[in-house]
Nucleic acid binder design. Sequence first.
DNA 1: CTGTGTGAAGGCCTTCACAGCC
DNA 2: GGCTGTGAAGGCCTTCACACAG
Lengths: 209, 209
Amino acid sequence: MKKISQKTIERGVFYIRTLEALLKDGQTLISSNQLANITGFSDAQIRKDISSFGKVGRPGIGYSTAELRNILQDFVLKNEVVHVALFGVGSLGAAILKYPGFHKDGIKLVAAFDKMKNKVGATINGVKVYDPKRAVDVIKKTHADIGVIAVPKEHSQEVADIIVLSGLRGIVNFSPISIAVPKNVMVKNIDLRVEFFSLFCNMQYNCGI
Amino acid sequence: MKKISQKTIERGVFYIRTLEALLKDGQTLISSNQLANITGFSDAQIRKDISSFGKVGRPGIGYSTAELRNILQDFVLKNEVVHVALFGVGSLGAAILKYPGFHKDGIKLVAAFDKMKNKVGATINGVKVYDPKRAVDVIKKTHADIGVIAVPKEHSQEVADIIVLSGLRGIVNFSPISIAVPKNVMVKNIDLRVEFFSLFCNMQYNCGI
DNA sequence: CTGTGTGAAGGCCTTCACAGCC
DNA sequence: GGCTGTGAAGGCCTTCACACAG
């Protein structure tokens, strides 16, 4: 089987999200050019990406929106559901719990954890909040795939350790400090400060030229 | 002046955040190797990045933590403060408003907007909530640099239009659909679904090999 | 003429490897 | 010994440009 690059996969997820919006609008056909205008990627890029999944489009016509969506889903998501365990039910954690469109789109929050006694036992948006001490157990029982760190930065490393100990191999880290994990654990950092700053810097550079 | 790539800038912001944590721990010296272990980038990468800002380190010794931090801040952030206008004070918007460490670290939330009458006029974490109709005015008065979209996806395009109309040239879009903007406006999409999925896919690929 | 699929070309970015300095 | 700074090499990714299909 052909090797598919991580960049292609990331864009693939983005295409899926776009195609789904188009399907809702009743658009049955889409060209690489139109997709390019919507997503901001180049049309050649998009055709190349799609070509790694086989010959899907019809020359002179374009791609069937539904067919393309299905094929991307087969290859990129493999029609699996990602099970997510959330650590920290503060304002950010609560926002994630309330994030719309998870359940229907292949993402399932299976458990939340918080140290605060008054939060343990609660059910938010259908997700139960547990004591972090029970994490290893609960994570195994709920078949979580990835852990999300949304705790104050003072505790992010200890949460990372718990996640690793529970056997998870993927972490999304919202806390603004780096965490140390074994090499076989993938970490995706989302730091709002970094996002804001890098956008701002890029703005300055692109205007200057 | 030398051209500095966007990738270098993004990593630069990440280095700054790491150096600041080290400074807090009282570490005055740091080598590219240590930084590599913390951040996950390669040591060569880090040296190359830093070299675009001049000769900062001392062979055999390493970098002065404080000096490196200052130089990165000068070049990457230019010691400026990024002024952010937030659209949507739902659970995600509230989480952003409460995100710790903004004010002291070069990011300043200058205004929030929400359609809900019962939110307009409130002050959350020192940030006033305005009616979106006043956006153009308020954004000019508060000298906002970038806009953040944290509204339900049904309204994200109309908010994007308002932001563009207000003269902003940078948008961070948290809503899970693409927005259409003029070419000179930079958009950074943060879609939790995309993040979760792409992490999950990458996990599978890296395990398989 | 419209639009896909794809080798070739080009560009960007990372890694290598080592000279030079402490 | 340890570490930085940097040309060279290598690899990855995007864009180009065109053959081919509708």
